[in-house]
Design a protein around this nucleic acid. Structure first.
Lengths: 193, 193
DNA sequence: TTACTTGTTCACATCATTGTGAACAATGTA
DNA sequence: TACATTGTTCACAATGATGTGAACAAGTAA
């Protein structure tokens, strides 16, 4: 049966397609770098997503031109995050990509972004509490307490928005997201006027 | 007039406050790292935001314990992004932080995220076009074209959502955002059921 | 003017990230 | 069993990001 990166790759058409696939892998890699992953995660995932058949780690390493050791670690993380799944439970099982990645994105937002915001909020609160307690009168000469309160409020708002995003159903399917988008779009339009 | 990091910093209370301020700077720095900036940008901005008076570059460098050369470059970028403003047009003018940073966030999303998504979409389209053109019958044995189409649709959906976010009025004020949040919240709740 | 302070630039040092290759473990196969 | 293949681990190399200091430019004050 035909396999990705097979002996037919000397064929001109296959070379063209392979280049296209690499472009997809690279662009998805670049994109995902800004979402808490490394570029290589996106490239491996994209390759699995475009492949008609499950791929073994060696094939992935060969196709992408990276070492087996790198693929090993990356696959482990992708499986851990629920973006990739082994076909069976054997040691040398090939892998497939999962396309319902909303749970993963939500999880990333939950752990990473939430914690960052919460740290900001707590540090701001610590500041204003201490400023009011030990600051005395002159504190307003040095620090802008009112602005600190504004920042706290903004942080809380950001946390509320984040909560909303995280709480979004499951649906990473294009259909549902489009539907959801329609609702929000109508709403925003109403809010704008 | 009292100034940040002044000679009074030997005072116990001042030391406490200074530590709190540093915590705020660091946490905002950590947060902003995931939004296309470096940590130092957030720390400089936070210091300016909390300071009651405009600060000169030397003061910022001293307070944060970094070199003047670093502060110089960072300030230039922050001014360029519209997050910080010089008080007057003189060379040695001190700087203040601007808190309406939604335009900046929108601009970042517009340039960075949009381009990344657009590159992904184009590479996927290039792939399916070439696959259909030169692929012949066996292409389905090797590549999952249907999945490629799904990914294209998802990318377009993400672009639509992004457009919506970018198009969001101006309002970085906590009040307006909270209001907007309320609308969206009600909507999502309705969609969930 | 001279001396001093502040801001800017750039070549370099420092540090963190990313990827490699060799040794090993685990599995399949003759 | 012996042999080949695949996956895993870890110390290290390569690369890139981040910050520094020295030299310079531009202003300020004596």
């Amino acid at each position: 049966m035909a396999k990705l990166g097979s002996e037919h790759s000397s064929d001109a058409a296959a070379v063209t397609i392979n280049r296209r696939v690499m472009e997809v892998c690279d662009s998805i890699g670049d994109f995902i770098e800004y979402w808490g992953f490394k570029g290589i995660h996106g490239r491996v995932w994209a390759l699995l997503a475009l492949s008609a058949e499950p791929l073994a780690q060696v094939q992935i390493a060969q196709y992408l031109g990276v070492s087996r050791s790198l693929v090993s670690g990356v696959i482990a993380e992708l499986v851990d995050r629920g973006l990739v799944r082994a076909v069976d439970s054997s040691r040398n099982s090939p892998y497939v990509a999962l396309t319902d990645f909303w749970p993963t994105v939500a999880s990333v937002l939950r752990s990473r972004e939430w914690m960052l915001l919460e740290t900001v909020r707590q540090s701001l609160e610590g500041f204003v509490v201490d400023a009011e307690r030990v600051g005395g009168d002159s504190i307003g000469q040095i620090y802008n307490l009112r602005r600190a309160y504004t920042l706290i409020k903004m942080t809380e708002t950001a946390q509320n928005i984040l909560r909303l995003l995280i709480g979004y159903p499951t649906a990473a399917t294009a259909d549902r997201m489009t539907q959801w988008l329609g609702h929000v779009g109508a709403l925003v339009k109403r809010f704008k006027t």
